[in-house]
Write a protein that binds this DNA or RNA. Sequence first.
RNA 1: GCCGGGGUAGCUCAGGGGUCAGAGCGAACGACUCAUAAUCGUUAGGUCGAGGGUUCAAUUCCCUCCCCCGGCACCA
Length: 591
Amino acid sequence: MAEKILVAVAWPYANGPRHLGHVAGFGVPSDIFARYHRLKGNDVLMISGTDEHGTPVSLAADREGVTPKALADRYNRIIGDDLHTLGLSYDIFTRTTTRNHYRVVQDVFKTLYDQGYLLRQTTMGAFSATTGRTLPDRYIEGTCPICGYHEARGDQCDQCGNQLDPADLINPRSKVDGTPPVFRETEHFFLDLPAFAEQLAAWITRQEHWRPNVRTFSLNLLDDLRPRAITRDLDWGVPIPLPEYADRETKRIYVWFDAVIGYLSASIEWARSRGTPDAWREWWQNPQAPHYYFMGKDNIVFHTVIWPAILLGYGNGGEVGGGTGEPLQLPHNVVSSEFLTMEGRKFSSSRGIVIYVNDFLSRYDPDPLRYFLTIAGPENQDADFTWAEFVRRNNDELVANWGNLVNRTLTNVFRNFGQVPQPGPLAPEDVALMEATERGFAAIGTLLEGTKFKAALTEAMRLASQVNFYLSEQEPWKVIKSDRERAATVLYTALRCVDHLKTMMTPFLPFTSQQLHEMLGYDGFIAGPLAFRECTEEDGSTHRVLTGDYAGWVGRWQASDLPIGQVLRKPEPLFKKLDEKVVDEELARYQ
RNA sequence: GCCGGGGUAGCUCAGGGGUCAGAGCGAACGACUCAUAAUCGUUAGGUCGAGGGUUCAAUUCCCUCCCCCGGCACCA
């Protein structure tokens, strides 16, 4: 029975190219999850896009003398290319600057406003004296009034760790151009989070299947819920859909408010692009459809508190969501990863401590990266990317265990039989191996459903080891000299296991699994490919989305029925062994 | 300061009140040579951060302390 599953992936911010930390945190895990469920036969809707509004995009555009939209266009393209190259199988990867998105965001805003969940409050804000734009606290620096540190940020002093108010800084100045900020009153809309406190507390308390850190952290947040501003004084963002703000060029909806609504708007865009404009409701207004959100730990608050509050407030109302009487679904699980560091230090674009995805993939294949980020990534705790460890994992694990198993098995079969050999009677050890391998479907499936990706891949690798062991014990390359039928039986057994493992590896290693699929003599896409498509909106504007036709996948999460006599294609190694010297080369490149 | 997460074999980590504390990799030795010098076997005797407590029994529960990391809500 096919389940509808929403896989909602954090939206990469379009103020620059994304680095390994971003795809490690949510990109690869969410894709493994989505691919597994599709192989299982479930109806997955996997959505995301680039997040393109807000101060950082605006400032980056200023620095380069281009419009924010032009900057976002550029990074939307680069990021989309990265995700495509990595094989992240979105049903739609779009962006937040579409007409569709604006319409949905404004509908949500308007609905919450009409329901009384948006409060108007006047606060003191900091503005740039030169541009008149809001200066977020982080963009102001000055001398810390507590410890005297000269480069304290407006929100917090990095030296003494105290939280600050930018107005308290001595000699405050804009980090952008060094001018002193101007403080003045400004009116904003606040989401009335306290109005949802009880519902949220009851709901989160029930989510015992969440990772403990996510649940505990979220419950702690509820102790001190305050209304949260969802507008900004900025000219780059979704306009406020109220008559009195119609011509206010400098007040926009806050980027985070619009970004989370992207999950909904992207689903709607997907449905419309397929010619089934209401299809999104099968996920969003269906209590049987679990929603899984994937993100880094810095985004937990937006997904366990703010976005659920918005969904609760929106309920079954609104122009977009109304009609069926069913409320929009809350998250079923919020899967948060920890952080990836690089060679022991935090990623920092400005300090050059960074590996961009596109740079990495220009020299290395996607599957080894996916392998590393899964087996050694920040799933449960911060993890460190080092080139030495990447090379080691690639050579000593991926190549030596799985890659070698595939290569030695296929080479033996191809050379001696050229096709899937007809086995003789199976010996107990043949049956035992086959059964042990087949049990992997259930074991790995359970781990994947529980978002335990590292453990799932470890189990698949353990099974591969067992098959290596079996081959070394049975020595078909010797047996064939005296007993061709027994050799055929052993190789058939190993080949079946390799075929099982191919499927189990597909969520993690989609590209090489496809190659293996073909070498085994099969046709069709076991799980691919992805495609870009141009999307045209009502006003004629177009944008590119990453998508794919995943219904055409021939892979199934079940034991192989490898046909006897199927002709193999010439085997080639799936992975490249990396020379140890790439460690020094790469370190030199980034230092 | 507050909240949270960590400190387990050379490295990366898993585990969890009680048979000898585990895995992968490295290292040593041996086997093999079909395979990208890949594979297979044996070997590691590590105060499970420190101290105290609860218990018949703690690395696993509680307390204190030390060290590391993250968050603390208008950066996304």
